[in-house]
Design a protein around this nucleic acid. Structure first.
Length: 357
DNA sequence: CAGTCGTGGGA
DNA sequence: TTCCCAAGACT
């Protein structure tokens, strides 16, 4: 049961709090759709501090959308490197090009037009259209799920896709009387990340705790409700860092798998490292190539949904002829060692390269 | 529509 | 160390 007075108070107080406490963020200076869009894409599933670092890099390199549209894909990947969810980088580029080519470089103000652009989903379309064009669209993000779940004691599992509609309708009902929807959206997100935090919420200074279901019933930890997470899958990547004095041999990842479009070394996926080494050696030996194994380095890459054990095996090829033979044999591409920093590699490989140089 | 996509911060 | 979590989108 939701108390009527709680609903009435909610928006007004949250916005009042926002006016006094809103953060000074670089993309809040004006309501330039390009900047708002860029920041929203970078901030998807990303903490504010991290997002801002990348926002500054991007806005410096691409002050206007035309520059972003014209950029080489590899340039974008190299700036994006380390941020994760690399499809966002590809879609960022695609949307920049669509805006320039189909919209004369001007962002559409309509929610559905925005929604049709690559990488812009319901959240981002709502954010851009409300913040920049004052549409009545409500953002439903992790903050909104958490704040509303706690404040009203909502027993819906937020990671079930059908819950989205429920929270969207709830937002409409709550914020019916709010004129500046964009400000309301920013307000509830700031409130969620600064006061109603996932852990150790600051209920002691919360201005709506008197009418908060979870404060009254001490259920802050219980909400928001979630489906139990499944165990992470485990994979084993064995990388063979084939190289000579000046070059590495690398390949690009395709297919529908992790790290799509990023670069990597020659990979053999096997739980048993020795097996992988044997397979590698026997393939090489068939072609009578001389290879000297040096060190092996092991790391574990913890992702949200899987755990990857990664091993790196340094393989030095002395003869030029052997080097190009292996290049063809494994369909690899040679790259100058100094140029690796210009390419997109997954974090574990980037760390390895930094460690080597 | 449930599964998949990364990484870093914080407890 | 290990876990949860973050201004979600796509298939």
């Amino acid at each position: 049961m939701i108390k009527h007075e709680s609903k009435l108070e909610f928006c007004a107080k949250v916005m009042q709090w926002f006016e006094a406490n809103k953060r000074d963020l670089p993309f809040r200076k004006d309501k330039d759709p390009y900047r708002v869009w860029l920041s929203e894409i970078l901030l998807q599933q990303t903490q504010m501090g991290t997002g801002i670092k990348y926002y500054k890099k991007f806005i410096k390199k691409f002050p206007k959308i035309e520059k972003l549209a014209k950029a080489k894909e590899e340039t974008i990947y190299s700036i994006w490197k380390g941020l994760g969810y690399y499809n966002r980088a590809k879609n960022l580029h695609k949307t920049a090009q669509e805006i320039v080519n189909n919209y004369q470089g001007v962002f559409p103000n309509d929610y559905n037009d925005l929604l049709s652009l690559p990488g812009i989903g319901k959240y981002t379309a709502s954010a851009i259209s409300s913040i920049c064009f004052n549409s009545k669209r409500y953002v439903i993000d992790a903050n909104v799920y958490r704040v509303l779940s706690r404040y009203l004691g909502i027993n819906k599992k937020i990671n079930q896709s059908k819950s989205y509609k429920y929270f969207e309708n709830l937002s409409k009902e709550l914020a019916k009387g709010i004129k500046n929807t964009g400000a309301y959206n920013e307000a509830i997100m700031d409130f969620g990340s600064m006061i109603c935090k996932p852990k150790n919420p600051k209920c002691d200074i919360c201005i709506i705790r008197k009418t908060c279901f979870s404060y009254i019933n001490n259920t802050q930890e219980k909400y928001p409700l979630k489906e139990v997470v499944k165990k992470r899958k485990v994979r084993y990547f064995n990388y063979f860092v084939i190289q000579n004095e000046n070059y590495y041999l690398i390949q690009k990842r395709y297919n529908n798998d992790i790290w799509k479009n990023l670069f990597e070394f020659y990979l053999i996926e096997d739980k048993n490292i020795q097996n992988a080494k044997n397979v590698f050696q026997s393939t090489i030996n068939l072609h009578k190539n001389v290879i000297s194994h040096k060190e092996t380095i092991q790391e574990v890459s913890q992702l949200s949904h899987l755990k990857i054990h990664v091993s790196f095996h340094g393989c030095f090829i002395k003869k030029k002829r052997d080097f190009s033979l292996i290049e063809k044999l494994f369909k690899l591409k040679k790259i100058k060692k100094q140029k690796t920093k210009n390419l997109g590699f997954p974090k574990v490989i980037d760390n390895y390269l930094k460690y080597k140089t």
